[in-house]
Write a protein that binds this DNA or RNA. Structure first.
Length: 294
DNA sequence: CGTCTTTGACCAGCGC
DNA sequence: GCGCTGGTCAAAGACG
């Protein structure tokens, strides 16, 4: 699918230090507090903050995403490459990010409790003691029935303050925190307990994020009312997958309100509260705090 | 009562 | 073949 006007703009603004395109709450030390998201920064800083706090988004992540049929159908590869470029600027890959096959590992420096909200609800399905480590590893699975993403959380043996999160089955969770989710007045009911037994699109580790092919026109076929978004109720795809959300993530200029998404205390910057109103709402984030069993 | 977490059991892959 | 290890399952208990 060809790039559209807003995709170019998106890339431009993403990389534009001045543009308030990305405005996210940022907390210097981060990771474990609060919903006092009063400090916001522009997109360039956003990237840096994101990177420094989360060390998320590996090159492979971007490449995989870029190569995926669904994303490329919706977003120009240039976007992904630009994103990669932007993140590389901040030495992302030097900050603990590593990759192994289809797994994506992030290291999160976090003193105290491990708190991480990547905007999605995870269900813990197992915990194992690890050889040569006093810290157990916890296994989580995305509760979205259409997502087969999994992640493992464990503390680093050499640095107790560092938590290692390994994502398997790219779901681009990193993007979710920047969405307004869990808005109290959301109207769309979401099954509290998406049964895994429900039809799951079989996904391979590398394409879980494309579990649900999107209609080509979803994003770029008509001019998306970017600027008028604030007044519109944006209807996300049923899965709330990245491809459903990116356009809304990108243009989120008025993070206003500080009304916070209280539960979204996150290792990543908390999702900005925005004027956007999604009809889709995530499941309750009752377990936003990773319990890594420590 | 429904949902989620815990945790021991089970299974598969791998190295010796 | 055997043992070790990592990953998953599923029953039981906890919790709201």
């Amino acid at each position: 699918m060809e790039a559209t006007w807003f995709e170019d703009e998106l890339v431009r603004e993403l990389l534009d230090d001045e543009s308030p395109l990305f405005i996210v709450p940022y907390e210097e030390s981060n990771l474990n507090t609060s919903s006092n998201s009063s400090n916001y920064t522009s997109n360039s800083s956003f990237l840096d903050q994101l990177i420094s706090s989360c060390d998320v988004l590996s090159e492979q992540t971007v490449e995989s995403a870029s190569n995926s049929s669904s994303l490329t159908s919706n977003y120009p590869s240039s976007f992904m490459q630009e994103l990669l470029s932007a993140t590389s600027r901040s030495s992302l890959l030097e900050r603990g990010m590593c990759k192994a096959e289809s797994k994506y590992t992030l290291r999160i420096k976090s003193s105290g409790n491990v708190i991480s909200d990547d905007g999605y609800k995870w269900r813990k399905y197992g915990q194992k003691s690890i050889k040569n480590s006093s810290n157990p590893r916890s296994y989580y699975r995305c509760t979205n029935p259409h997502c087969s993403a999994k992640k493992q959380v464990e503390r680093s043996t050499d640095d107790p303050d560092t938590v290692i999160i390994t994502y398997e089955g790219l779901h681009l969770h990193f993007t979710y925190p920047f969405l307004k989710m869990g808005q109290p007045d959301n109207t769309t009911p979401v099954a509290k307990k998406p049964k895994v037994s429900s039809p799951i699109v079989e996904a391979h580790p590398d394409d879980t994020h494309i579990a649900k092919p999107k209609e080509p026109g979803h994003i770029s076929s008509g001019p998306l009312p970017m600027t008028g978004l604030a007044q519109e109720e944006v209807v996300l795809g049923p899965q709330g997958l990245l491809e459903d959300m990116v356009p809304f993530v990108i243009r989120n200029p008025q993070t206003n309100t500080g009304s916070s998404h209280s539960s979204s205390v996150s290792s990543c910057p908390s999702p900005p509260t925005s004027p956007l109103s999604f009809s889709w709402s995530p499941p309750h984030y009752s377990n936003l705090y990773f319990d890594i069993g420590i």
